[in-house]
């Protein structure tokens, strides 16, 4: 177990180190998330009262799009110089690669969200009355479901000819429950609801998190064959 955790840690550390040398991916994800919001404000009148109602949805669209951008990179970068072969040859359980990548992607996506969310609230002049702690919990729980299944499908897509184009097509239908849950919960918490009032959705998202962490874990060996 200890060995497994240190393998996971090593993978996260390697990816973070490579990323923070260039910061290419994080900065692209951030810029992309902002662009989505800016495009939305041109598409709808940002000062209209009705826009406040759809703001949670807009925010999540931006997060999901920006997140997908990052997910795409996580395994494609390993294809260069056949780096993935090296990872697979390491004498550790291959599930460590999956968990390491999930953690890494979780860190990038959370960082982007942590910067973008306050800015979105300011840009739309949104008077936030709910509790920040509940909001953070809801965002983290939803992001985790998205990243867990997204990392796995990114690994799957990286094995095909059309990987970057393929990932959104195969990922978006699968994450429908998380998107619904995330938007409904964010909307409720923006309106001042407590966590207890969104318990149903939180349960859906948590079940999703667990299911799509366990099943990829079981199937990951099959994915990395050859």
């Amino acid at each position: 177990m200890k060995e497994f955790l240190s393998a996971v840690g090593a993978i996260v550390w390697k990816d973070l180190k490579a990323e923070f040398r260039t910061k290419e991916m994080i900065s692209s994800m951030l810029i992309f998330a902002f662009l989505v919001i800016v495009i939305f404000s041109f598409a709808f009148d940002p000062t209209a009262q009705s826009v406040k109602k759809i703001l949670p949805g807009v925010i999540w669209v931006a997060f999901i799009f920006a997140g997908t951008l990052g997910l795409n990179r996580s395994f494609l970068s390993e294809q260069i110089n056949e780096a993935i072969q090296g990872l697979m040859l390491a004498p550790v359980d291959r599930a460590a690669i999956y968990f390491g990548k999930v953690l890494g992607n979780m860190i990038y996506t959370s960082l982007v969200e942590a910067v973008a969310l306050p800015v979105f609230i300011i840009l739309f002049d949104f008077s936030f009355s709910g509790s920040w702690l509940s909001l953070i919990l809801v965002v983290v729980a939803s992001t985790f479901g998205f990243v867990a299944v997204g990392t796995f499908l990114a690994a799957l897509a990286s094995n095909t000819r059309t990987s970057e184009v393929l990932l959104p097509i195969i990922l978006f239908p699968v994450i429908v429950p998380v998107i619904i849950g995330a938007v409904e919960m964010t909307k409720a918490i923006f309106a001042g609801s407590s966590l207890g009032e969104v318990a149903t959705w939180l349960r859906v998202v948590l079940v999703y998190d667990v299911v799509f962490l366990v099943i990829p874990f079981l199937l990951f060996d099959f994915l990395l064959e050859a």
Binding site: P173, V176, P177, V204, I215, L223
Partner: peptide
């Protein structure tokens, strides 16, 4: 192999999708 893996993921997802959409 890839298709089989996705076939499993996709099918497992369907009940969760149904529940989520019903509550929504």
């Amino acid at each position: 192999r890839l298709a089989a893996i996705f076939g499993i993921i996709g099918f497992v997802d369907v009940p969760i999708v149904f529940m989520a959409i019903r509550w929504w």
